[in-house]
Amino acid sequence: MFYNNAAVLPYWIKEVTKVIHYLGPDNVFVSIVESNSGDNSAELLEDFDRILKTMGVKRRVLTRDTSIERPPSQLMQETAPPRITFLAAVRNLVMEPLVQHGGYTRVVFSNDIFIEAESIVELLDTKGGDYDMACGLDLSFWGLYDQWVLRDRLGRMASTLWPYFLEDTGFRAVMADEPAPVFTCWNGIVAMRADPFLPLALRTGQLSTSPLSRPLAATHPAYPQPQNLTPAATPPVRFRTSAPDECYSSECFLLPYDLRRQFELNNIYVNPRVINGYMWQWYVWFKWVTRHWAVKWWIERVENGNGVHLAKFILGDPGKIWQWDGGECHPVRGSFGFCVSVCSS
């Protein structure tokens, strides 16, 4: 998914091309959607399409796409409902070739980020491949960027500051530079199982044939469902918007939430070694400057997580955080923008 990304695309294309060579052109399918750009993003992606063709890579590269109407700019603020509806639809459009033809066991979904080829391979190899979904770390300005989506393994909000998690397991994992179990994540780039997206006839046996161990919450749009329904027999998952009684959430939060609740795919991790960013200067800062051995020593041995609990960013009024089936909820329902609050809870 790309929109006005001429600044990031040359780097992204170069690194993704390296990954394709590493994995083997016969082993990947590339699906890209670009729309409504006012720069030369479309031309850059059309050049990439030609490169993929010469490599023999199966692909679908849609540029200047008009099949999904983009809302007016005033309705495209970060948490605005029209924006989430639009993004969910575009993400589903990206997934169409997989849904229609299957043939793959893993999906790597990248946002418009700066990232190294080695980091993408690292993501794919999270926990030696023993995961249902693995996410990178998108870092910017103060630290952790996408806190609307990320929840620790207990469903609680994270901190912007390293090591990000306030619960002990995640805290210690990030301190050791190891994957941390989480409830939900996205954070720039993810690798996940392909089967939940596929029609039943195209699935490869990745999903359980036992009934769900817990019923769906009554707030879920698929509720009620047969008591004996198994993950293997559950209809394909799609990116979606929040149901009326759910916590108002990003489409990128609801996807891992649905993987948990409908498919019991609970092995979800953030890999702190998979650093990525949306802006070059912050990517350089967090990828190389803060990873320099001397700076890293200071962060780990001197700062040692000091103050991490003081830097939660809440989208909305901190006094209105509430609990639901998906954990702690940012109080932004119906907002056409967001208020960021720093709290010390």
Results as ranks from 00 to 15, higher is better:
residue 221 P to S: 05
residue 293 W to D: 06
residue 158 A to I: 02
residue 1 M to K: 09
residue 76 M to F: 13
residue 145 Y to S: 03
residue 243 A to T: 04
residue 238 R to G: 08
residue 184 T to W: 03
residue 147 Q to C: 05
residue 174 V to I: 15
residue 177 D to W: 15
residue 164 Y to I: 00
residue 25 P to M: 10
residue 165 F to D: 03
residue 162 W to A: 04
residue 345 S to K: 03
residue 22 Y to I: 09
residue 238 R to E: 10
residue 58 K to T: 10
residue 154 L to K: 12
residue 101 H to G: 05
residue 188 G to K: 06
residue 9 L to T: 12
residue 188 G to L: 08
residue 59 R to D: 00
residue 137 L to F: 06
residue 77 Q to P: 01
residue 142 W to Y: 07
residue 70 R to C: 01
residue 134 A to I: 02
residue 121 V to M: 14
residue 237 V to E: 05
residue 337 G to E: 07
residue 106 R to K: 13
residue 108 V to L: 13
residue 253 F to G: 00
residue 120 I to S: 04
residue 158 A to F: 00
residue 249 S to P: 00
residue 238 R to T: 06
residue 155 G to N: 04
residue 190 V to Q: 01
residue 155 G to F: 09
residue 211 P to K: 12
residue 247 C to Q: 02
residue 139 L to F: 00
residue 90 V to C: 01
residue 143 G to W: 01
residue 235 P to N: 08
residue 152 D to M: 04
residue 17 T to E: 13
residue 70 R to G: 06
residue 345 S to R: 15
residue 303 E to V: 13
residue 143 G to R: 02
residue 22 Y to E: 14
residue 272 P to W: 11
residue 98 L to I: 04
residue 53 K to V: 02
residue 24 G to L: 09
residue 191 A to M: 03
residue 15 E to M: 09
residue 304 N to Y: 03
residue 44 L to C: 06
residue 207 L to W: 09
residue 320 K to M: 05
residue 35 S to K: 11
residue 98 L to A: 09
residue 174 V to N: 03
residue 31 S to R: 08
residue 185 C to Q: 12
residue 202 L to P: 02
residue 285 W to N: 12
residue 140 S to A: 07
residue 266 N to V: 07
residue 194 A to P: 06
residue 320 K to I: 07
residue 343 C to I: 15
residue 176 A to H: 11
residue 271 N to I: 02
residue 228 N to A: 12
residue 37 S to T: 07
residue 323 Q to M: 12
residue 51 I to K: 06
residue 247 C to V: 06
residue 190 V to G: 04
residue 129 G to Q: 13
residue 180 A to N: 07
residue 299 I to Y: 11
residue 189 I to R: 09
residue 186 W to D: 06
residue 200 L to D: 08
residue 261 R to S: 15
residue 64 R to M: 05
residue 102 G to H: 03
residue 174 V to D: 06
residue 288 W to K: 08
residue 185 C to N: 14
residue 105 T to V: 07
residue 274 V to Y: 01
residue 50 R to K: 13
residue 192 M to W: 02
residue 47 D to K: 11
residue 294 A to P: 02
residue 27 N to T: 01
residue 174 V to A: 07
residue 49 D to T: 04
residue 112 D to V: 09
residue 89 A to Q: 07
residue 270 V to T: 14
residue 17 T to Y: 10
residue 221 P to L: 05
residue 334 G to S: 05
residue 212 L to Q: 10
residue 244 P to E: 03
residue 90 V to Q: 09
residue 168 D to W: 10
residue 171 F to A: 09
residue 12 W to F: 12
residue 27 N to F: 11
residue 225 Q to L: 14
residue 57 V to K: 04
residue 20 I to N: 00
residue 318 P to Q: 08
residue 258 D to W: 07
residue 34 E to L: 08
residue 154 L to D: 10
residue 279 M to A: 08
residue 83 R to K: 15
residue 28 V to N: 05
residue 335 S to N: 10
residue 46 E to R: 14
residue 20 I to Q: 02
residue 241 T to V: 15
